[in-house]
Each structure stands twice: as C-alpha cells, then as structure tokens.
Nucleic acid binder design. Structure first.
Length: 720
DNA sequence: AATTCTGAACTTTTT
DNA sequence: GTTCAGAATT
C-alpha cells in the first residue's frame, strides 16, 4: 500500500462529506439530505477516527434506531478497517441500554436475568393489572394506559414526578406506579424502561457516569431527528464534559413525532453543544433533478426548517407522472399496467415500489397484482418473533430462565390445553395477590382438588424442562422445550396452519443454533433479549423479482428506480387526523418529501376520485401535496377509461376538474364536495353519502358543529 | 373448553 | 370491508 490507509478511506468524498468525516474532536450536527451519502459519512468517520489513531475501538459509541442500520454500519466498517467490533459499542439505543443494564444490573436494581417486554407483552401485563385492580377497561383502555406510561417514560418522568388536577389523570398516574411496581416484582423491563433505567443509573452514579463519558470520547448518532427527549438526555450524560457528539440527521425527514421523536433536539444540540453551524450534505446521488426540484419545492412550505436544498449533477431526467384515476381499483390497475411497461423497458420489478400512506390501501393493489399475475411483496404485518408459535416457545424458554415471569406463565399455562381453565387461573392470581408472591410460587403451593392436579402437572413440566435444560446447548434447549411442552404435538395436529407454524418453530431452533452469545453461560438470557429487541426483518423472499408494496414510513431509507406514490388524496395523504394542527400537516408534508425522494429515475403520483374506506365509498379531492409540486415538473397522464367528452361536459360544476359523471350519484340534487346550509347547524360541506335519491343520508362537515349524518327525508338543506 | 357470534375500531412503527 | 378481541353459546 503506497498511501496511508486514511487517504484511501477518504477517496471519492465530496467537499462537504470530507468536512464531516474529518471533523475535529468536537460536536457536530450533520444535516444529511436524502441520498446524500449519510451512512457512508458515518461509517467513514469511524473508520477514519480509528485508522488515524485518534480513537480506539473501545472509545467509540455509535447509536442507531434499528438493528438493521446497526448491522449495516458494522458490516461496512469491518470492510473498511480491521477492527475489533466487540470492543466498540455499536447498536440501537435499546440494544446498548440492555448491554449496559446487564453489566450494571445490581446498580439498576434488576435481577441478572431480567427479561424484556415487547409491546404485546406490555399490553398483556397492563390488561392483567387493570383486572386485578378492578379498573374498567372501558374507562381506561389498555392502549391509552400504555401510551400514557410510555409517553411519560420517554420524557424521563416517573409516576412520582407526575401530578394532576383531574381525577382521570390521577388514576392514570396511579396505574403507572402500579405497573412499574408489577414490573419490578416480575423482574421485567419494557422498551422505554431500558432507556429510562440506564439513564437513571447514570444520573445517580457519578463514578459510573465518569467511567463511561471518559471511555466514549466519540459518540455518533444516526437519524438524530428521530430521537426522543429521553434518548437525547441519555446521550448528554454519556457525552459528559467532553461533549463530543457527532449527530447525523435530517429535520425534513422527521416522520416519527407520533412515537415521541422530537425534532427540537436538533436545534437543542446546536446550543447545548455549542455547534455554530450544521454541516450540510446537499448533493444527492440518488435522484434525477426533476425529482429533487419537486421535493425541494414541496418541503419549502414547512416553517422552522434548518434549511437545505438538494441538488444533483445527474441532469433533470424525466418529468413526474401524474395520474388521476377515477377509483381506487382504476388506480391499482394503472399502476400494475405501468409496472409491466417499466419491466419491458428494463426495470426490475424489485426496483419498483408502490408507496401508500396507510396499510389498508394495499388491498386494492394486491387485488390488481394478483389479477395481472405480477409477483409482489408487501412489507408490514407480523414479523418472525411476533408470531404466536414463536412467542409460545419463547414463553416456555423464559420460564426455564425464570419461572417467576408471570407474563410468560400466563401465556402458556394452558397452551397446549391441559385443563387449566380461566377459573383456575383466576384462583391462582387471587392466591398470588393475597400471598404477595409470583404466580409460579402460588402454583407450586396450590392445594388439593381437580384443578390443582392439572396445575401440579404444569409445575412438574416446567421443573422438568429446567432440569433437563441444564448442560444443554441453546439449540438443544429450544428443541427440548418445543417437543416436551407439547407445542410440537399441538401444531402437528393442526391441519390448517400447523405446517407453517412448525416450520417457524424449526426456524427458531436454527436461529438458536446460529446464535453467538457474548457469554456462553448466559446464552439463553442473551437469546431471549435478542428475540425481544429484534422482532426480525420483514424477511424478503431471496432472489424473487417482485414489486415492493409498503407504507411511506417503512420506505424511509430505501430507494427504487421507479416509485409510485399512491392515494394522494385529502384525508388520506395528508391524513385527516393531521388536519387539526399545522404541526401534523407539516409532518405529513415531510412524509411526502420522504416518498418523493425514494425515487431514482421514475416518479408517479396517483390519486383516485372515489375510494373505498372502512367499507364506504369516499369521494376525496386530490391532495394538496400534488399541487405543491410545480406544474412544469409534471406530465399529466389521462385516464384510459375517461368518460366520453359529451358526458363529461354534463358533470356538476362543483365536482372539480376531471370528475367522471358516473360518480355523481343522484343525491336529490346534492353532491359530495358541495357547500350547503342548514337552519340549525349553519353551513358545511357534503363529505360523504349513503343511499340515493330521497332515501340518501349525507354526511356533512359543518363549520360549527363538525361532522353530522343527515337524512334527506327530514333535513332541510339548501345549496350555497 | 372449544366454537361461534357480535361489535368496535380503523394512520404511521421500532425497540 | 375486514380484523380482532371478548362475549355468548354449545
């Protein structure tokens, strides 16, 4: 090698990328636009720090949001420099906090074997708690309680720090406290708890804090715009007085406010860490110029941006195609037809994506794809570790690790059915509450009777599993549990779904066989943690050339040669739930920005004039986001099945341009989108309809009264 | 204890 | 329109 390694590393970086990679040992905020080489900058910086000797592997802390991103960083890094990956802390916030808490479980007041509750587990625990406290699920929906708890944890707030003026919130706080107490009793942590607990340990323990902030001289964060308040506070503690935080993010791609992400952290970082000015990566290596122009013009309408303009030297490329279908079915057929054409032109199906705002939209697309015989793949839905058979097997494994795990016990106490019914379980819970012991101990001490005999057999089964598992490898343990618990027999007897579930269970054994534990004596515990922290990819069918269907959210970070952004209608995208406030609308716009910037060469925007939603036809108007794309960048494609011109001329004027007459139903002179006035409710707009003629019911959005269904037989409406 | 029935929900998602 | 959970039924 004739040149120093660091020079090779830096080859091919543009000026701004180079500035970011070789940033001195102080904090930075890198505003990395879509397709600007963000991951490359991040990994190259770590490689550069290591190969120039500025940092040792043990001194690097790199945080991502997904396991996939963490893995990619590790893989790319080890391709760049010879590095001891084990010494570096590269992982997700949750993965790293788990690692931290395993090491310091004593300081954290956790058992060495603490288990991690995923979202499902957490919900189950909350439901159980509500029942035991005799709190009505009507008044306190488990989902709402869950959101309250997680929201507060993500803001760093414990129940005892909260206060309320109303009885309802006071009850929520009470439930929060009871929930935490229950988790403590069972030795389990939910996702937010991993963060909060390690934050608290660091805050309370100066020596520990000192140790870590001395150790991690270089902290790097990916997707910084997605951090919540607690994560930011955790990073600040880790950074300590060195305050050396290298954050990469894009405020224009912040689309996770609904789960606590706070874009404000980006501005906060600038002042908290005295960063004068962000480094802007604005050169885009992905999309053609027209696509970027559209994205820039759209996002410019948002307020309070840090500011950024994407550019490319790749040329303008093709115009953006706009297609206004007259129904969701027509939209889907258009997309399928177009995809076929693109395939003939040389695009791989796998290089095309159909994006939509909400999962429900996939149905019409799926239907059209099946009809056309085009292979496709839908992202979303259950992932590997979320499947019931996998969760059952894991519950048995948890009992092997710790029989006092109530969640696990309740999950499988009667799976497969072994004569322990709801009544028995109820009695067991009563006993455990009275004696203040975990369910397991109550079950061990259960007295005589028929149900006690069944309970006794279950206790024996678990004890037997525990005994037999000693000295076995992880894979053998998993295999033992599946066979001996009766799960295998149960699924073998299931004609309908058994086969697939058995295959998944075998896959679980494979996963265990391939699992590398840091500490082999803790293999089971580590495996269970990994299973909770990584639900598994939406694993792709390897090698199949299939068109990709996914929500805009799950498309973030991906790119495709051709992208269809579908369902561009008011109420859908932007979603109606975000109409209320400007913040919500701006997040929707960022979402659109993310959608647009996924495309390399071809971008299609599609919408429909009628759409089935919740089992009802809706007649939405085209999304404002379509109109925010400069018209000169668009080529409007006309519908292949446009109604004949003379009929088109007959359509009602208020239906807007292009509304096919066939959709203007007979609603006694009224139409969707029309303004009307009512003697009592004032003025409003017809937004939906059922039935026809004098029998029709109209849904009207009144300025004062909001949405109302009115029966045309009774309501006196006058057109405005 | 298993099966069928009813009704409520229904935006986005990772850990 | 569909799914999912919990209630009601057998």
């Amino acid at each position: 090698m004739s040149r120093p390694m660091s020079a090779d590393l830096l080859d091919g970086l543009n000026t701004e990328q180079l500035r970011a990679v070789t940033w001195p040992a102080r904090s930075a905020l890198v505003l990395a636009g879509a397709g600007s080489g963000k991951t490359r900058v991040l990994t190259t910086r770590i490689a550069w720090l290591l190969s120039t000797g500025q940092a040792s592997p043990a001194g690097v802390l790199a945080v991502t949001f997904t396991n996939k991103a963490a893995r990619e960083m590790q893989t790319r890094l080890s391709a760049m420099v010879p590095v001891n990956v084990r010494a570096m802390w590269i992982g997700t916030f949750h993965g790293l906090c788990n690692r931290f808490l395993r090491i310091h479980h004593r300081d954290a007041g956790l058992p060495a074997t603490f288990q991690i509750l995923d979202t499902q587990d957490q919900q189950a625990l909350i439901k159980r708690l509500l029942k035991s406290l005799e709190v009505s699920e009507e008044k306190f929906p488990p989902r709402a309680v869950q959101n309250f708890i997680n929201g507060n944890k993500e803001s760093g707030l414990r129940a005892d720090k909260l206060s309320a003026h109303d009885a309802y919130t006071r009850k929520l706080i009470e439930l929060y406290a009871a929930y935490d107490a229950q988790c403590r009793r069972e030795g389990v942590c939910d996702f937010a708890e991993l963060l909060l607990r390690s934050f608290e340990v660091l805050s309370a323990n100066a020596a520990l804090r000192e140790h870590y902030s001395e150790r991690f001289r270089y902290i790097l964060v990916d997707e910084f715009q997605d951090t919540n308040r607690l994560q930011y506070a955790w990073l600040k503690l880790m950074a300590g007085r060195h305050a050396n935080l290298f954050a990469v993010g894009d405020d224009d791609q912040s689309i996770y406010a609904f789960r606590g992400a706070d874009v404000g952290n980006m501005r906060a970082l600038l002042s908290d860490f005295s960063v004068a000015e962000p480094v802007r990566l604005e050169q885009n290596y992905r999309s053609m110029g027209t696509i970027l122009k559209a994205a820039n013009a759209l996002i410019e309408r948002n307020d309070g941006r840090l500011g950024k303009n994407l550019w490319t030297d790749a040329g303008d490329g093709e115009p953006i195609r706009l297609y206004e279908a007259w129904s969701d079915g027509d939209e889907a057929e258009f997309i399928v037809e177009e995809a076929r054409t693109l395939k003939r032109e040389g695009f791989d199906l796998a290089d095309m994506a159909v994006l939509y705002r909400s999962n429900a939209q996939s149905r019409a697309l799926e239907h059209a794809l099946v009809n056309a015989g085009l292979p496709y793949r839908i992202y979303g839905g259950l992932r590997f570790f979320e499947r019931q058979e996998i969760k059952h097997a894991l519950a048995y494994l948890r009992l092997v690790a710790n029989p006092e795990d109530d969640n696990a016990l309740l999950r499988v106490i009667n799976v497969p059915a072994r004569g322990i019914g709801a009544r028995t379980v109820e009695n067991l819970q009563l006993a455990s509450r009275e004696q203040g012991v975990p369910l397991w101990r109550a079950a061990c001490g259960a007295g005589g009777g028929r149900s006690a005999a069944a309970l006794g057999r279950f206790v024996l089964l678990v004890e037997d599993l525990r005994r037999k598992a000693e000295g076995l490898t992880l894979a053998e343990t998993v295999s033992l549990v599946i066979d001996h618990s009766g799960l295998r027999d149960m699924y073998e007897a299931d004609r309908k779904e058994g086969e697939e579930r058995l295959a998944n269970l075998d896959e679980l054994i494979n996963a265990a066989a391939g699992f590398m534990a840091d500490d082999p004596s803790q293999a089971l515990i580590e495996f269970l943690s990994a299973a909770s922290l990584e639900a598994g990819d939406h694993q792709a069918e390897a090698g199949e050339d299939a068109i990709q269907l996914m929500t805009v959210h799950s498309a973030k970070g991906l790119e495709f040669g051709a992208v269809f952004v579908s369902g561009l209608e008011e109420g859908l995208f932007p979603h109606e739930n975000s109409f209320n406030d400007q913040k919500g609308l701006e997040e929707e716009r960022r979402l659109m920005y993310v959608a647009i910037t996924r495309a390399r060469q071809r971008l299609y925007l599609t919408c429909a004039q009628s759409r089935m939603l919740h089992g009802q036809s809706r007649y939405p108007i085209r999304s404002r986001f379509v109109d925010e794309v400069p018209a000169e960048l668009l080529r409007v494609l006309s519908s292949g099945r446009r109604p004949a011109p003379e009929r088109e001329a007959a359509r009602a004027p208020w239906l807007g341009d292009g509304m096919p007459v066939s959709h203007a139903r007979d609603l006694a002179g009224f139409a969707i989108g029309q303004s009307v006035s009512h003697a009592r409710f004032g003025t409003g707009v017809v937004v939906n309809a059922e039935g026809s003629g004098q029998d029709a019911r109209l849904q009207i959005n009144f300025a004062e009264q909001g949405l109302k269904w009115l029966d045309l037989r009774f309501a006196k409406l006058t057109p405005v």
